[in-house]
Amino acid sequence: MNPLDFSGVFSRADRLVDGVWLTAQISLAAMVFALAIGVLAAVLSLSGNRLLRLPVFAYVEVIRNTPFIVQVFLIYFGLPALGLRLDPVSAAILAMSIYGGAYTSEIIRAGIQSINRGQIEAGRALGMSPLTIFRHVVLKPALASVFPSLVAQFILLLLSSSVVSAISVAELTSVGNDIQGLTLRNMEVYLIIALIYVALVAALKGGMTVLERLLFPFKFLRR
């Protein structure tokens, strides 16, 4: 066994920084889109209309029960056959958004279902418009109650970004793989990469905690 030698990793710190930056960018973009897809899909899946519910059911189950790498390949290599050619980064964001959206929609659906019907009726009695009721009486409390699950899902989404190295996106894992190939120092690279991911997750968790206080101050009221 060779002694650990990190010099080949540290001398390429600039590339790691580029990788971290790209990982952060595609992950954040995917989180925003996944949330939007999730809300839309959750609302459709709770609608009384079967024609709306069924496609959402199919979307959620196909995505949740097949490997993410296959979805990535289909979007990057399969869509050109249909005339849609995406660059690797766009394909990665699209794939991650679709993937994250499926899980997010299930979480948000549970949140909406936990809203007491009495609240909605109270909103109506106060003369609120359906849109106002949806936004303030249904969606906001629903998101507030499932916020921890959403954060957990976003962490998984961040970690899943490592898969898109397969379609040549130069994110963190991909940079790590490059350095492994150049130096053959696999263990050293993985130790550093793992530390960086833990730090990224810590940053995401911290940011989400701040966001939770800003968006849902009512959760932190003293009783």
Binding site: S162, I193, Y197
Partner: peptide, 19 residues
């Protein structure tokens, strides 16, 4: 929970086997 959740599974596996 914090550390393991934040580490990609591939890395955990790698360290368990080769580490």
């Amino acid at each position: 929970i914090f550390v393991v959740q934040g580490t990609p599974l591939l890395v955990t596996l790698f360290i368990a086997y080769f580490g």
